[in-house]
């Protein structure tokens, strides 16, 4: 769990990893530069560096991001949630950028996500087309990429999660932020770096009334347990 000044979902993710999944995990401060020994690095949600300039714009120059980039290049699993997704976009580890939500509001609500690619390390425990209920909470989640990039993402099955309604239908109403093609989460070409705006760490226990996030965490866990995290 990488911690930037202003991260605020880091403890939630560590709780899920340790208490819910029963795995080892620790915080990595943004000044650290060594990620050796980790199976997966999570960039958590929050407001790194106060979201100054643009969300993620300052965080991407943190010392730890050099290590994250090297970790990803070596095939390590990297998961960016919400602000973590924004950091991955700013760092160029994922294509595209985030615009302000089309409603111009901070949207904090339940969304339904359709699993578009169930063959990634982050979704192997899901059925293709499965619909998950996962909450979002953000102001800049309106995913943008030029038409060529969007076409490439679709062609390579890099759109992993899409906002849909409860019936699994892709509608404008189901899209909380105006995101291009209802995109909620994308993965890089090599399949080891995933960014998503919804928060799977907020729906991983029965006491929270929703355990759909477990499908993503269980995917990650089973992937790592069945042969290590390296993808490339």
């Amino acid at each position: 769990m990488v911690v930037f000044p202003g991260s605020n979902c880091d403890a939630d993710v560590l709780h899920v990893v340790q208490q819910v999944l029963g795995q080892e995990g620790r915080f990595v401060w943004h000044r650290e530069e060594d990620l050796s020994g980790f199976d997966c690095v999570v960039l958590p949600g929050g407001f790194s560096y106060g979201d100054y300039l643009r969300p993620g714009a300052i965080a991407r120059f943190s010392p730890v991001m050099r290590a994250v980039t090297a970790f990803a290049a070596a095939g390590g699993l990297v998961l960016g949630i919400c602000n973590g997704f924004q950091v991955l976009l700013e760092a160029g580890l994922l294509p595209g950028a985030m615009l302000v939500n089309d409603s111009v509001q901070f949207r904090c609500l339940e969304t339904w996500l359709r699993v578009e690619n169930a063959a990634t390390p982050f979704t192997v425990a899901c059925r293709p087309g499965q619909v998950l209920r996962v909450p979002v909470a953000h102001h800049e989640g309106n995913y943008y990429a030029d038409p060529a990039t969007l076409a490439e993402l679709e062609a390579q099955a890099q759109v992993v999660l899409r906002y849909v309604n409860q019936n699994g239908e892709e509608t404008p109403e189901a899209n909380p932020n105006g995101s291009a093609r209802n995109i909620a989460g994308i993965i890089n070409r090599y399949g080891n770096v995933l960014g998503l705006m919804p928060h799977p760490e907020r729906c991983a226990e029965p006491i929270l009334g929703n355990t759909d996030g477990r499908y993503l965490w269980n995917s990650l866990l089973s992937w790592v347990q069945q042969g290590g995290g390296r993808v490339v």
Partner: peptide, 8 residues
């Protein structure tokens, strides 16, 4: 490098 995001 920083002040503008060339994507948008």
């Amino acid at each position: 490098q920083l002040l503008a995001n060339p994507v948008i």
